[in-house]
């Protein structure tokens, strides 16, 4: 059992958890993930580690309640426990002083972009962050991102805060202004990562994205997370989760992620219904 030391909502359905996991905290580097299972009936889901505190022996994960497991996770509070947490898995982010680095986070993806932005800043990059969300109340980690940014931008789809539009608007503007950008990191929904990839492709800017395919064990045993990179099949859990964006077959990733769409909907609806039955507000 892994105890939740702290749990708080960052926005309406995005929740931060600090979990006691000293062994993982000691080893974790930016970009790595854990797999967790909430209870005996639970599925195993991968979540990127947003932060870790070796002294406290804790890791931080940030989850958006989308499917059954993340919605159920987000009902847990400080003092409660998660049955299984294993990690840190995957390869850490490649961090070096590229020169100027742009870190883009979309929605809950900002939680993953943040530690990498921090690491890139710490090794001396001129760090530009673009933090995108659907609306103002869904913007997360604004202050944290700012702290490690030389320039920080916010965008919202509905214009309720920052630039009215997409993260790619800012990125394209920077590029068209002739800013020398050496490295772009984009983490968020697949359409956003793909749009960033297409924005940098014509300019040959090195671009890295963090993928979130379906996984079970996270150690290379099942092969469920295979993605096509440069025409080759790669297991995202052991070779990723970060890959050179310009080599990724996004269509395949999108389609593979839809494998269980109907079943996922069924499980989520059932869970929400059960929540209503016990008069508990689903989150």
């Amino acid at each position: 059992m892994f105890k939740i030391i702290e749990a708080r909502f960052l926005s309406k359905d995005v929740k931060l958890f600090k979990i006691a996991a000293p062994r993982i905290a000691k080893k974790r580097l930016a970009g790595q993930f854990v797999i967790l299972r909430l209870d005996e009936q639970g599925e195993r889901i991968p979540l990127t580690i947003a932060d870790s505190d070796d002294k406290q022996g804790s890791i931080t994960i940030i989850a958006q309640g989308i499917g059954k497991t993340t919605k159920k996770l987000n009902t847990l509070n400080t003092g409660e426990s998660i049955l299984d947490v294993v990690g840190p898995l995957g390869k850490p982010s490649h961090v070096e002083n590229f020169g100027t680095a742009v870190c883009i986070g979309g929605g809950v993806g900002t939680a993953i972009a943040y530690p990498i932005a921090k690491a890139l800043k710490q090794v001396g990059n001129h760090t530009i962050t673009i933090n995108g969300a659907r609306s103002k109340d869904l913007v997360i980690l604004e202050e944290e991102m700012k702290k490690f940014s030389d320039e920080a931008y916010i965008t919202t789809d509905d214009g309720s805060y920052g630039h009215h539009g997409f993260v790619t608007d800012i990125l394209k503007k920077l590029i068209s202004e002739g800013r020398k950008i050496n490295f772009v990191l984009a983490i968020g929904p697949i359409p956003m990562m793909r749009a960033v990839t297409e924005a940098t492709r014509p300019h040959g800017i090195k671009t890295v994205v963090s993928l979130n395919p379906i996984m079970i064990d996270g150690t290379g045993m099942c092969g469920g997370c295979r993605v096509i990179v440069a025409g080759k099949s790669e297991f995202a859990c052991v070779s990723g989760p970060e890959f050179d964006a310009h080599n990724i077959d996004f269509d395949n990733l999108i389609n593979r992620n839809k494998t269980y769409l109907d079943l996922e909907k069924e499980a989520t609806l059932k869970f929400e219904h059960e929540c209503k039955l016990v008069n508990q507000k689903p989150v």
């Binding site: 009936q41 639970g42 599925e43 195993r44 059954k68 497991t69 079970i216 064990d217 045993m221 099942c222 092969g223 469920g224 269980y260 079943l263 996922e264 069924e266 499980a267 059932k270």
Partner: peptide
Amino acid sequence: YSANEFLTRVNLMKAYKFPEFDSP
């Protein structure tokens, strides 16, 4: 599927008991 994935889903994660068990 790889056989590992198919069998892991059914044996270890008990996908044949979905939706009582979460893994599909």
